[in-house]
Design a protein around this nucleic acid. Structure first.
Length: 551
RNA sequence: GGUCCCGUGGUGAAGUGGAGUUCACGCCGGCCUGUCAAGCCGGAGGUCGCGGGUUCGAACCCCGUCGGGACCGCCA
């Protein structure tokens, strides 16, 4: 059908006959006879010079046979990988005609409403960027698999149709045809099964698992996402870090990132202490400074007797932050549980400008400036509170102002890790075109895709380590590869939730009224599933009111 | 469940009470033999989401409704 692909031909092919297949990306006509056609496939475009009248339009699918020729020196296109050559004496065969596309099949489509792009997904994916994203995703997944397998992990797929699992999120449910009134749940994560695998002696399990959570959407949140899920037997914490770290590095390298070959380890305590966050962004250095000693003997009531006093220097930000912004930041700090937020601006003469400056002695002001390495134009932020509160609040302030800098390009961020990437995958999360009423007359097959799958930007790493009850000592890790929100619950709160959740799971699993009648034989692999009669879609009744699913 | 924002040719935008809905890209036709987002000339394409109201007059204001989006609640 073809001898080469559209991004393949180079000057070394000059003189050869070549046949290309692809889509007509653009057509530039000169008179009745001469036309330049850009033929596109996923590898790139090649210019074909057609000097016989052929009526081809945008997005026609064609096969072009011609001779690879050097372009005249003045017509070489350096912006194109194939720009040194062109196909001449072409015979064009139209394989399929096409209507004009509803939006341009190039980077301009980034401006087009997402719903329109989703409606014509087959056109959208023709675009270079979308092709690249899909292939990037495949490369990352492949690198993860290779890494995990080289470390002795066994890929095991767990079922999609399962009984309800006791986790925090609402589950998608699937009605049972055989047993009306009973439902399967779609897994929020493969949590339960992997521990059984450890008990069963698999030793090392992994899976790039699809997780489904029926929670309300956000711009960067989706109904379904993928997560690297793993479980290991007979290991300690370092073994887990090493194994998963290798996979994360492999994934980053597959994405073309320079990793330095190492993941820096710091303890949670150190992360909180230095950055006020359990997910610190090490790209900017706004570290928190311990100021408790500076104000040990202070008469300023807000500082006296505080468990911890932490400060951060937002260098050069004094002018940027007016009273309004500072008040807003103070409000935010209070909402986070702090008693207040002290700010001080360093004036040109080095004096501290602040509502509270008069309460601080000369020596305290001097020590403060020294501790924070304050220079004129700097904005100093201080929180005196419980240690955790002080750290967390200041960490948030620092991250906010750093993000503000980043968005203005004043901090170099590593590309895609902060920018929102366009959707790369097929629209996997299908949403009903209108509200599902769960009436028998309306079936989900009428659904249209309304929500894209947005694929990894900042991969949020949720690393959970838990030992599996009566099994061999095991460690589990889930590394989410989807864009969950950066403001998602902290490690501490997540842990609390997990404990609550798992505490309820033991009682819950007994209290869920499972049907013991002959279960439909669902061959999802190795685990027999059976539908469960549901009166609540919530898996954790202690946290939310039951909700009848009978509407 | 809540708050806010947006619906104008195929696409993206402008127009916020009064002249003929405007512009760019795309599309169709003509001219054009070295373009590469080709160029020049001409043309077609609109229920201004829908319904009601206010007004001499509504794309514009009000009410309702449908659709979309952002955020909060929610979400390992």
């Amino acid at each position: 059908m073809r001898t080469h692909q559209c991004g393949e031909l180079r000057p070394e092919h000059i003189g050869q006959q070549a046949t290309l297949t692809g889509w007509v990306a653009t057509r530039r006509e000169h008179g009745e006879k001469l036309a330049f056609l850009d033929i596109r496939d996923y590898t790139g475009v090649t210019q074909a010079v057609v000097d016989n009248a052929v009526d081809v339009r945008s997005e026609y699918v064609v096969r072009v046979t011609g001779t690879v020729a050097a372009r005249p020196a003045e017509n070489v296109n350096d912006g194109l990988a194939t720009g040194g050559i062109e196909l001449q004496d072409c015979v064009v065969e139209i394989l399929n005609i096409a209507e004009p596309p509803p939006f341009p099949v190039n980077e301009r489509a980034d401006q087009v409403a997402e719903n329109t792009r989703l409606q014509y997904r087959f056109i959208d994916i023709r675009r270079e960027r979308m092709q690249r994203n899909l292939r990037l995703r495949a490369a990352v997944n492949s690198a993860i698999r290779t890494s995990m397998e080289s470390q002795g992990f066994v890929e095991v797929e767990t079922p999609m149709l399962v009984p309800s699992t006791p986790e925090g999120a609402r589950e998608f449910i699937v009605p049972s045809r055989q047993q009306p009134g009973s439902f399967y749940a779609l897994p929020q994560s493969p949590q339960l099964f992997k521990q059984l695998l450890m008990v069963a002696g698999i030793d090392r399990y992994y899976q790039i698992a699809r997780c489904l959570r029926d929670e309300d959407l956000r711009a960067d949140r989706q109904y379904e996402f993928m997560q690297l899920d793993a479980e290991m037997s007979f290991v300690d914490q370092d073994d887990v870090h090493t194994a998963i770290g290798a996979a994360v590095l492999a994934a980053a390298e597959a994405a073309g990132k320079d990793t330095g070959g190492e993941i820096v380890k710091i303890t949670w305590h150190e992360a909180m202490n230095r950055f006020g966050s359990d997910k610190p962004d090490l790209r900017f250095g706004m570290e928190l400074t311990e100021l408790t000693a500076v104000f040990a003997a202070t008469e300023f009531k807000a500082f006296a007797g505080a468990h911890a006093i932490k400060g951060v220097n937002a260098a050069g930000k004094a002018d940027e932050y007016g009273r309004n912004k500072l008040d807003g930041m103070t409000d935010k700090a209070k909402k986070m549980g702090a008693k207040g937020l002290v700010w001080l601006k360093v004036a040109a003469d080095g004096a501290l400008e602040s509502p509270v400056a008069k309460f601080l002695s000369e020596s305290e002001q001097a020590a403060l400036k020294e501790a924070l390495a304050a220079q004129p134009g700097d904005l100093l932020l201080i929180v005196a509170d419980e240690w955790a509160t002080a750290c967390e609040v200041l960490g948030t302030c620092a991250a906010t102002s750093a993000a503000r800098l980043s968005s203005r390009g004043r901090i170099a961020t590593c590309g895609s890790s902060t920018s929102r990437c366009s959707s790369a995958s097929m629209p996997s999360a299908v949403a009903p075109s209108r509200r599902i009423t769960h009436s028998p007359s309306r079936t989900p097959t009428t659904c249209t895709c309304s929500k894209p799958t947005r694929w990894p930007c900042a991969a949020r790493r949720t690393t959970s380590c838990s030992t599996a009850g009566s099994s061999a000592p095991a460690r589990s890790v889930s590394t989410s590869t989807s864009c969950r929100r950066a403001s998602s619950p902290s490690w501490a709160s997540a842990t609390k939730r997990r404990r609550r959740s798992s505490a309820s799971s033991s009682t819950r699993s007994a209290s869920v009224p499972r049907r013991t009648v002959a279960s439909p034989s669902v061959s999802t692999g190795w685990w027999p599933s059976s539908p469960v009669r549901r009166t609540s879609v919530r898996s954790s009744p202690s946290r939310r009111p039951s909700r009848a699913w009978t509407r």
